[in-house]
Design a protein around this nucleic acid. Structure first.
Lengths: 227, 227
DNA sequence: TCCCCCATCTAAGCGCTGTCAACATTCTTT
DNA sequence: AAAGAATGTTGACAGCGCTTAGATGGGGGA
């Protein structure tokens, strides 16, 4: 009664959604937050299940009542990341000065998210690639994905049908991902300085990703035997 | 001299000898090969230093006489990977049917290398990104990098100076990396089938990475305050 | 030719990890 | 109030990276 009230308060709001923890308050949420704190502070190397439990103030075995194994906790953390990245993309599209530039703005926002949350960003793709799918994450990031698609359409991308729009969307996402993973390399520091900062560098690189000769090699490709 | 030759042979093809070597012939090479074997067979999760030592038939502490720590062994494995990828790129450029298509051919070869050596490819970038540099690897991959640059120049990429060529080279590399990391997702399987196979899919995506409106947003970018 | 040095390898062990089974505690339900 | 499910703790196990101390044997100096 009294105890119940204390715990209800200490629980992180959320009135009464079906079957929530009782003892700690909301351990599963606390574990995710603890995990993100460790990820930021010490990088992925420090993100052990025991360290997360320690940070949350519980015993090493406690998390197993909320997550099947370590991977499931990491999945939950990654999911949060996908959701936040989707929001960042949505915002970039909304605040862009014009439709024709929103594609680039989205790309920059994407890379900035990765720069500001490097360990989280890497974890997101690690979990996705381990399972060879973005499903689940894709649902979380669907807003992001569809924003890219819509932005491409509005920008009048040179696509003639839905399939080409899909290919362009995939291409844009891949390009942004590539830049996000490369932008941190020291080799580019001089160039960044010359261009006036990291963000200008990212804009410049993204703007120059126009390299593959589409007109000479359409996709029902004649010489399939190159490799 | 004779002994040296025997050891050199036994290092490559182990399976014989009534008496096993007193001091392993060329352990550091054997460890790298064992590591690659494990990486292929069990993925990065199975790649423990102890497992590598086991595979090579030595005690768990033996590797420490050849590599300062586990990271140094992984670096050596990754280096081999960069070298092989550079060779694959060089070959793709050499065997391309025409100069104008060699850019795309290089991209396809890049992605195919990643597809055929997924764990190795991931390890390569993990090691590079942990150190925030491709140096060392960059030297190994320099042939690859410069091939891309030259191919872009020959293809008559729309660049007006050396800096733009550099930006285009970075962009192309980033795009290929992005596609390499994404191409394995199950979400694209239907599209792959429709396009006639994985390689056609890769060609199509690479060909459609022409998304960022370069003409409307050059790099001394006016509205820097988007993010 | 011999022998000894020292690079190479082994054995043992430390503190860490993920995971589990057994036990203890608390909340919900009846 | 008793039962039972949910939640947390303790202790243990095997495997990990890494270190130290000691054994081994091959190539260079005598």
């Amino acid at each position: 009664m009294v105890t119940a009230m204390r715990e209800a308060e200490s629980a992180v709001l959320e009135p009464h959604s079906a079957s929530k923890p009782y003892h700690h308050g909301d351990l599963s949420r606390a574990l995710i937050q603890a995990g993100r704190r460790i990820l930021e502070a010490e990088g992925p190397a420090g993100l052990s299940l025991r360290a997360v439990a320690r940070e949350a103030g519980v015993s090493p075995a406690a998390p197993y009542h909320h997550f099947k194994d370590k991977g499931e906790l990491l999945d939950a953390i990654a999911s949060e990341g996908w959701r936040e990245m989707g929001a960042a993309i949505a915002q970039a599209r909304a605040t862009g000065p014009s439709a024709s530039s929103s594609t680039l703005n989205i790309g920059v926002a994407y890379v900035c998210f990765a720069r500001d949350n490097p360990a989280l960003y890497r974890l997101m793709y690690k979990m996705a690639r381990d399972k060879q799918t973005m499903e689940g994450h894709a649902k979380d990031a669907e807003s992001g994905w569809s924003h890219v698609r819509e932005a491409l359409k509005e920008a009048g991308a040179d696509v003639s049908d839905e399939r080409e729009l899909t290919l362009a969307t995939i291409g844009a996402w891949c390009a942004a991902h590539g830049v996000a993973e490369m932008a941190g390399f020291k080799e580019f520091e001089r160039l960044k300085a010359e261009l006036g900062g990291e963000e200008a560098f990212v804009r410049a690189v993204l703007s120059h990703i126009v390299v593959f000769p589409r007109q000479t090699m359409r996709y029902p490709c004649p010489d399939e035997a190159v490799r």
